[in-house]
Design a protein around this nucleic acid. Sequence first.
RNA 1: GGGCGUGUAGAUCAGUUGGAAGAUCGCUACCUUGGCAUGGUAGAGGCCCCGAGUUCAAAUCUCGGCACGUCCA
Length: 949
Amino acid sequence: MVMAPIDLAVFHENGYIRKQCRVTGLWFWTSNHDRDTCGDTSEDEYTFIGSPLISGFDMRGKELKDAMREAFLGFFEQREHTRIEPYPILARWRDDIHLTIASIADFQPHVTSGLVDPPANPLTISQPCIRLTDVDAVGRSGRHLTTFEMMAHHVFNRPDEGRMYYWMEECVRYCHEMFTQTFGIDSNEITYVENPWCGGGNAGPAVEVIVGGLELATLVFMNLHEDEKGDVEIKGDKYSEMPLQIIDTGYGLERFCWAAAGTPTIYEAIYPQTVAWLKDLAGFEGVAKQWPNLDLDKILGEMSRLNGIMNIEAGVDGEELLATFLQRLAQRGIDISSEQFTAITDPLSRIYAIPDHLHALCNMLGDGLVPSNAKAGYLARMMARRTLRMRDELGIDVSLADLALHHVEVNMGNKTMKQTHDGMATILNLEEAKYVEMLRKGEQVIKTMLSGVDKSTETIADELLFSLNDSHGIAPEMAVSLAIRSGWKSVSLRTGFTAELAERHAKMAKDAAKENTESTLINGIGHLPPTSPLYYDDVYQFEFDASVLFCAEINQEGLPKGITHGVILDRTCFYPEGGGQEADWGVLSTDSVHCQVLHVAKIGNHIVHLTDGPLSNGDLVHGSLDWNRRKQLMDHHTSVHIVGGAVRRILGPHIYQAGANKAVDSARLDITHYNRLTRQDLDSIEKMANEVIVQVHKTEKTILNRKDADRKHGFDLYQGGAPKGNTIRVLRIADHDIQACGGTHHDELGQIGSIRLVRSNAVQDGVERLHIVAGQAALDYAREQDGILRQTGEVFGVNVADVPKTAERFFGEWKEQRKRIEALEAEIVRLRTSGGDDSSVSKDGVRIVIMESDGGLKNMSKMLKELTLDDSQPTLAILGSKEGGGKLMVATTENSIASEKYNAIEILQAIIPHISGGGGGRPTFAQGGGSNPEGLQNSFDAAKSMLGI
RNA sequence: GGGCGUGUAGAUCAGUUGGAAGAUCGCUACCUUGGCAUGGUAGAGGCCCCGAGUUCAAAUCUCGGCACGUCCA
């Protein structure tokens, strides 16, 4: 079975008929019976440019977006949908994506899987989204954006439980009513295109709503999931119906605004003030005035229309595209040279892209994101750097922070943000400084890399450009312009290189994508009742009785040594490894058997004890924990929460937990921050953490429904990671820190004793790792440190308090004395080489010196230098030492009769066997070593007889 | 998460096949001038990031650690 036609009463009632698109072959519904294309093809141009299709919205920019959003949400609110506040743009409730890419992303994976109830049903929302896949086309195509708001109405139906709110008929009816009545769109301009949707293992029928050549909305009816035995086939995969039936709609707010404004590009509809401001700053009027007879608006309008029907994709050859473009423009009566076209569109595309990029950047930073060189933070850095590059290319002299603050003021109004404006400015100023530094380094690297290349070269080697881009952050275009500035004036970028670079990256990404083999520890336990965890009821319970439900042999790599069996009980006090907290250890025993529990893992609802021996099904066992271990883990885990709260309070709202680990000897907490932490920072965090222990007596542990938890505490609750179930355990330490956490924590903070921040280090740019010790571990740590200091003091023979001062003095003296020894050695060399003893012989105008030295290689080479660097006295010098198994050095005065007559390597090779060694060097300087220092005299004798002296 | 790159004088960086640690700026002193800009001469300043390994020999090659940079997902 393939997907059935979407045949709805609402179509017929409004005079729509079903036709097949002449171009794409897709089926579509239209009330214009002459129409033979679906509206979204290479032959359907935008019809709204210059003549808006949506009436009643004369404003522009933020005001227009606000009005449009309100019209949409209001429409659905009046029709029994609940309005939901937008989710953050950082998708922190998910572990598969960094950014919110669609409104449905708010409800994945647990609402869409049916595990968690939606916040309301049906609901309407306008969700800010960021998609970076088309980032290169932004500003150039006239319609692409990285940041947009997806307006939506969502429904989560459960027909199997008798909850069916509405389906296709009503959905399309709402859409049609809104389009034609609220927005006054001519029915003939609307086409509904049937185009089944699939993605991420789900699928369903879908309708694209095209207005005036622009896709304004997609209505997806998600009711299928991938299933090999399914009877529906879409794009080669088989699907079957799922119990949850979801309406996932997406209406592009900015596109509505564009259709209402009818401006040449989408950017002028939504960012008019910023575009005008940037034009002014970049002196764009001057460019345009060069050709007074060109009608700019007309050209831009035509460009957008053309872009609407031409597919600009990354990797398309730029020159070829330009030629086609100019040809098509000429057909439309616009006569423009490629130079004129480039002169106008190059700066303009940057002027358009900057506000879009700033919008993405401000949204990300506003949500508390810290720029970094990895993960989500890298996306912010990429946007910042793109913006900076375009700003520089436009020759605009405004800092990134000022651009962003201007953008926030003009385009974001009083949107509530986690990050303060000052914080944002601080972060962006740091980013700009890093960017400038990167450019400076890049220029240096280019100079070095090209130093051997002729100044008249026209190309830069591909490998060099790849390495500049990948290792030094210098994009190919940038590399070329830097090279030109540094004197290689005729280089240019080979056509198609950028595409090759992208291809290469794509290939690397593909190669790196490895299979995620999730090996299960134990199979066949699905039928067992879930293990009842006792550690939540009373975290101080360390003994319990239970019965064995399951026991099997385990044979798997990577587990702690000694593990032979996996045991599942009906209930347990043993905490399984999870949430960064290590597992409990202890003993499970019966009258006759004692098994050590060496590790505990959670598999689904079952807690598996990994033991060093077998137990039998039905056995009654007594379990007892290694309480010292558990107590220490609890000390650390609770401390991590306390420290986390303190860090957020002291450093600012951008602090987010990027990971944590709680072991016995110490705990780690990774936090997002834009600067390295100083010891002062650590001290004040440590101070506050210890104050909390004193001031807050009790922790508060509650269990909340996921829906209520979200509403009550927001998404900061999930710093420890995206929770999986519908019920959430919340740990509250007064108002200091509130977290969803499934670990074991103290009821009373006083149990911890004290917290020490040992040190911090950088995990990656933008992420700092705090090393924490608490409770007994803090005492042990202090004792150990004390011991180290005491030992050091004993070595110096001073009090511990004097160790730093003394070490400083010793180090200073050591350096001084080393220098003095060098000076004295030099003096010895001078004395010994100034002649006066019988080691110096003259032969045929060459002074021959054969001498034993007592220093190492360094000292010998100094003597050689002294002997052979004097041009006025041609010398052959042979030095030896008994140090380190014996050393020999032979050198001649360069460019003298000594170097003509004697070859240092030959002499060395001839005499070195006497000390059982080898060596080499240049004809005027050779050195080597051996393992028989006693043979040194034989070497000297051999040299003498060889030279005939 | 994966790939790539970099740690050498106070600063910016060179350093060839492993074989004698360098340049420029800055610093100090002296010379040139009435003084300044400048010019000249001399000098000081190095745990070649740390630790192991290979080697007769490591700034250089290999491995590990630390610090930093960068691209992609």
